[in-house]
Design a protein around this nucleic acid. Structure first.
Length: 286
DNA sequence: TAACCGTGGAC
DNA sequence: TGTCCAAGGTT
């Protein structure tokens, strides 16, 4: 009934050669990758990660920069507060950890923007720690293979955590974690799983019971067009694409709905993603 | 707890 | 074409 050997064997043959998985990857590079990968596909992260590590190869090098530079080079990766978080991580690592990315889960959790998953991932992948690494891929694989359900619960539950904990092998826990994640990313996908290519198809409870459809509450999909988020993105793009501060009129031209525009701008200022400078000019945080 | 926080590709 | 979703975190 064990899933380990088939999944580990499958991973050995089919894993992607991602730069943050290579031997020469540093803990800092791995931390940067994990934050960039939050809710963001690998293919979009790759070029930004390469540029980022070339520009800021250490926490100290990023800590010297204005936070706005981190936001600028974040480009269009999305959720730009992650760029601020990464900059704040760099400053905290430099000030409190002597420039070295901390190795323990608890220390990592003290850093901004690092929650349960990211702390476990960095402690595992950068330092070889033994942790429950529970991301959306792992949750989906376990939901299907073990629980026989198409999708995991909306929020992570104690039984899920307990199950994942029980499956961590005695040796090389990080390899197991990355292998299950990779299986979820490449084979056991959300939309159209490639069960024909799955190494545990013969022991997947969901497949063996006829792939029953998800019967829980509908998975809420949020529209994006016309939302405050889209408006914030449009305003921030103006700031990001300008080498210096821009007049308020430049922001006004980027979004027609004035009420929404002002609300979004206030949000950006509150979040520290933008600053009001002299003469009604706005810019990235300095 | 559920809403909020960007963006673009796949279907 | 619009919907779904991608290595989550914070409030």
């Amino acid at each position: 009934m064990t899933l380990h050997a088939p999944i580990l064997d499958w991973y050995a043959e089919h894993n992607r050669d991602l730069p943050w998985r290579r031997q020469e990857a540093t803990p800092w590079g791995i931390l940067v990758s994990e934050i960039m990968l939050q809710q963001t596909p690998v293919v979009r992260v790759l070029p930004i990660w390469e540029e980022w590590l070339a520009r800021w190869p250490t926490p100290e090098s990023l800590a010297k920069e204005a936070p706005g530079e981190a936001v600028r080079h974040w480009g269009r990766l999305g959720y730009p507060r992650r760029a601020l978080n990464l900059h704040a991580c760099a400053k905290a690592i430099t000030a409190d950890f002597d420039g070295t990315v901390p190795a323990t889960y608890d220390e990592l959790r003290t850093l901004p923007g690092i929650g349960d998953y990211t702390a476990a991932a960095v402690a595992s992948f950068a330092y070889g720690g033994r942790h429950v690494v529970l991301d959306t891929n792992v949750r989906r694989v376990l939901a299907r293979a073990v629980r026989g359900e198409e999708f995991p619960p909306t929020a992570t539950t104690a039984p899920e955590r307990k199950l994942a904990e029980s499956l961590i092998p005695a040796v090389d826990a990080p390899r197991w974690a990355v292998a299950v994640m990779e299986l979820g990313a490449l084979i056991c996908t959300a939309r159209a799983p490639r069960c024909a290519d799955c190494p545990v198809a013969g022991r997947c409870q969901w497949l063996l019971t006829g792939k029953p459809a998800h019967d829980g509450p509908p998975r809420r999909g949020q529209t994006y067009a016309g939302t405050d988020r889209q408006c914030r993105g449009a305003l921030l793009a103006v700031l990001r694409d300008s080498p210096g501060p821009v007049p308020k009129a430049a922001l006004d031209a980027a979004w027609s709905n004035a009420e929404q525009r002002e609300r979004a701008l206030d949000g950006l200022l509150t979040d520290g993603l933008a600053e009001l400078l002299d003469d009604d000019f706005y810019g990235l945080p300095t």
